[in-house]
Structures are given as structure tokens and as C-alpha cells.
């Protein structure tokens, strides 16, 4: 309760008073367990549905999806054109669609520009193509610094840009999700789509890595 005896004002107006979550156990693992148990007993959560959600993002949806798209963009000019001009119908056909990936924009690295993606306000990320974001993407340090000193952040990832490249940072402040298309490594002419996809890491599609050199 706050001083007025009013516990919770409703999100219609912001409230900076008491926080109900403080009534849960302080240990985070116990807190999750306590809430899951309570919600299960209220019929609001089916633990088997939680298992399914975890299985989906652990085993079925991940950066292999994005790598497939990038490799196909490198190899197939018609597909490349579709991804740049109007990607959503094709991604839906390919089954690479869903929550947090409804509005994709592909941003391509060139000799002149290196792209990098962040969400400074929370942790927006293209789930259907990259899965659940890595811890560092959600860290205060990455969110704070990648817009202010992207080159210093890239150095921490071991990325050195070529002399002529500017950095373009995309701050995901809306429901549009950006995916970086890294430059295709030289010496990959004639590579199959699978061989190319193997060179495309998760970080290269966020912009904190380059595509892997063949044989590296």
C-alpha cells in the first residue's frame, strides 16, 4: 500500500508506488517457480505449454533460419530482390515468420557501410530469424554504448572495419526488426547454399561480426 492506502492505480495512469512483485520470493529461480505454481493452480498456465515454448526457441527457431536467408540472398538475385523490396510474403511462405518478426527489413553491408543493430530501450530482436537474443545483446553495456561508440563496441567483438566504411547503427525502437546481411566472403564462388549458410553467424546478422572466411 502507498500512503493513500491505494495499492495499485492501473496502467491507465503511471504509478510509481509499491510493486506487487516484491511479494514474491527474492531468489529469482524460486520467484519463477512460485509464480508458475500459482498460475498453474489458477488454471492460467499449463506447464506443458511452457515446455513447448522452450522447445520451440531452443530447438526449432534460431540463427540457422537467418543464415539460410542470407545465404540464399547471396546466391539468388531474384530472392535477393524480394528480400530487399518486400520480404514478408516470401518469409511467410518459407515458414520464417512469427512473433517479433512481423516486419523485417534487411540491411546490407557494403564496402562503404557496416550495419549494426541494437535496442536501446529494451531488447527487440528478430526472433523468427535469430531466436532468443544472446545475453550481451540485452546487456546495459551493449544498449548504452552501441549507439554512442559503435566502433569501440565492434573492437570488443574483434571486428575491424575497412578504412572506407562508415557505421550505421539501427536502434529498434518500434516493431520493425532489422537483420544485417554481411558481405559475402571472397573465395566462395560456387559454394552451395549450405556451405554459405555455415559462414553466417548469429553475430554477423546483428552486425557485431563479419561473415566467416572460408577455411577460417
Amino acid at each position: 500500500m502507498d500512503a493513500d492506502g491505494v495499492f495499485w492505480q492501473g496502467f491507465g495512469m503511471p504509478h510509481d508506488h509499491d510493486h506487487p512483485h516484491s511479494h514474491l520470493p527474492s531468489d529469482p529461480a524460486l520467484r519463477v517457480k512460485a509464480l508458475e505454481t500459482l498460475l498453474t493452480n489458477k488454471g492460467l498456465v499449463n506447464p506443458a505449454a511452457l515446455d513447448e515454448i522452450i522447445d520451440l526457441y531452443q530447438n526449432k527457431i534460431g540463427p540457422q533460419n537467418g543464415a539460410k536467408v542470407v545465404a540464399k540472398m547471396w546466391r539468388d538475385p531474384e530472392f535477393h530482390k524480394q528480400m530487399v523490396e518486400d520480404p514478408m510474403p516470401v518469409l511467410q511462405q518459407m515458414g520464417l515468420y512469427g512473433r517479433q518478426g512481423e516486419h523485417m527489413v534487411f540491411v546490407e553491408n557494403t564496402d562503404d557501410v557496416h550495419n549494426m543493430v541494437v535496442c536501446t530501450l529494451c531488447s527487440c530482436y528478430p526472433w523468427p530469424l535469430l531466436g532468443i537474443p544472446p545475453g550481451w545483446y540485452k546487456s546495459d553495456a551493449y544498449r548504452a554504448r552501441s549507439v554512442r561508440e559503435p566502433r569501440a563496441v565492434l573492437a570488443e567483438f574483434g571486428v575491424t572495419l575497412s578504412a572506407g566504411q562508415k557505421v550505421r547503427v539501427w536502434d529498434s525502437t518500434a516493431e520493425v526488426r532489422y537483420l544485417v546481411v554481411p558481405q559475402r566472403p571472397i573465395g566462395t564462388e560456387g559454394f552451395s547454399q549450405e556451405e554459405l549458410a555455415a559462414l553466417v553467424s548469429r553475430d554477423s546478422m546483428i552486425g557485431t561480426a563479419l561473415a566467416q572466411e572460408p577455411g577460417a
Binding site: V45, I54, G135, W136, E156
Partner: peptide
């Protein structure tokens, strides 16, 4: 905020059990 740690929490499959549970919940 200090440096970014590129190894931090890289793979969801390796996340702590309660992290996965919290996401799913």
C-alpha cells in the same frame, strides 16, 4: 557501463533453467 562481453549468454539452449521458464511464462 563497462565493456560488452561477447560470450555472455550466447546460446538459449545453455541458459539456466529458470531463465527458460521465465521466458516461457
Amino acid at each position: 557501463t563497462g565493456p560488452v562481453d561477447p560470450q555472455d549468454g550466447y546460446d538459449f539452449a545453455e541458459a539456466k533453467d529458470w531463465h527458460k521458464r521465465a521466458l516461457a511464462l
